[in-house]
């Protein structure tokens, strides 16, 4: 699949396979198009070439109605949480249930409380999104992402900007929900240790292509210097510390 924005090529003929029931991580430096990839999978963007298939359906050839049917089987956790700010936590999670099901209020209440209990926020159901911490907002968004019992959940940078406790909670939740709800998870992140600790398989992407792929162990043992620099978080290496410039002495002397 290839995709570009204007004249800038974001993906150049990349190919990824997301296995069922596993946690697949997509990692790479900032600005490599990881979030764009999730939007392509979800059908919010259309590739220039190639296709995205989910469960045998070509996402971009579906009618709007069929695409919406497919999306009911996908959950997505946005980086910002994307909670609706004018309704409280309970109503945020009840929202997709009310829109897509004919369940009565008592059944919706039970389902929402179960989802909230799964992320440890049953007691926060009456709070407004503005009253939640960043970590709590992401857990509420996680509860909303699984509200319709999807088969696949996509996590967009779930660990960014989280304190260590929140991060630990989110790491455990992603792993445990994947197992208990038999989900297929896609985690997009550049938080290396956390992502590697829960992933079954990792794709490392940069400059519009898959640089390498494999299990966390395989990546740790990779001999590729770029992969090692990324995983170890080294400041200098194949990706230079300095932005391209003339030699420093020449610049200082002013020539």
């Amino acid at each position: 699949m290839s995709f570009s924005r204007g004249s800038r090529q974001i993906f150049n003929d990349i190919s990824l396979d997301i296995p069922r029931g596993k946690v697949t991580a997509i990692m790479g430096p900032s600005g490599t198009g990881k979030t764009t990839l999730l939007k392509l999978i979800g059908g919010q963007l259309k590739p220039d070439q190639g296709s995205v298939e989910m469960d045998g359906n070509n996402v971009h050839q579906l009618t709007r109605k069929d695409l919406y049917q497919l999306r009911k089987r996908m959950g997505m956790l946005f980086q910002s949480g994307a909670l609706l700010t004018d309704i409280n936590v309970f109503d945020n999670i009840a929202y997709p249930l009310r829109e897509h099901t004919d369940l009565d209020d008592s059944m919706i209440r039970s389902l929402v409380l179960m989802k909230l209990n799964a992320v440890g926020l049953r007691g926060a159901r009456d709070l407004m999104p503005s009253e939640l911490s960043g970590g709590m907002a992401r857990r509420v968004a996680m509860a909303r992402a699984i509200a319709l019992d999807p088969v696949m959940v996509m996590y967009d940078e779930p660990f960014t900007g989280q304190d260590p406790i929140s991060m630990g909670v989110l790491v455990n939740l992603i792993r445990s929900m994947n197992q208990s709800l038999h989900l297929s998870s896609i985690v997009v992140s550049h938080d290396v240790p956390e992502t590697m600790s829960i992933s079954d398989y990792i794709y490392l992407i940069s400059d519009g292509r898959v640089v390498t792929q494999g299990t966390p162990e395989e990546l740790k043992n990779s001999s590729d210097p770029w992969v090692q620099q990324f995983i170890e978080g080294q400041s200098d290496g194949p990706v230079p510390f300095h932005y391209a410039a003339s030699p420093v002495m020449q610049d200082l002397i002013g020539e």
């Binding site: 939007k39 979800g42 919010q44 919406y68 049917q69 999306r71 009911k72 996908m74 959950g75 997505m76 946005f78 980086q79 910002s80 994307a82 909670l83 609706l84 700010t85 929202y95 997709p96 829109e99 897509h100 909303r144 319709l148």
Partner: peptide, 16 residues
């Protein structure tokens, strides 16, 4: 603001 905080994208992904 709904657009910049991804609320509109969020709705689309909830098939709404």
């Amino acid at each position: 603001l709904m657009k910049s905080t991804e609320q509109l994208s969020g709705m689309e992904m909830m098939a709404i």
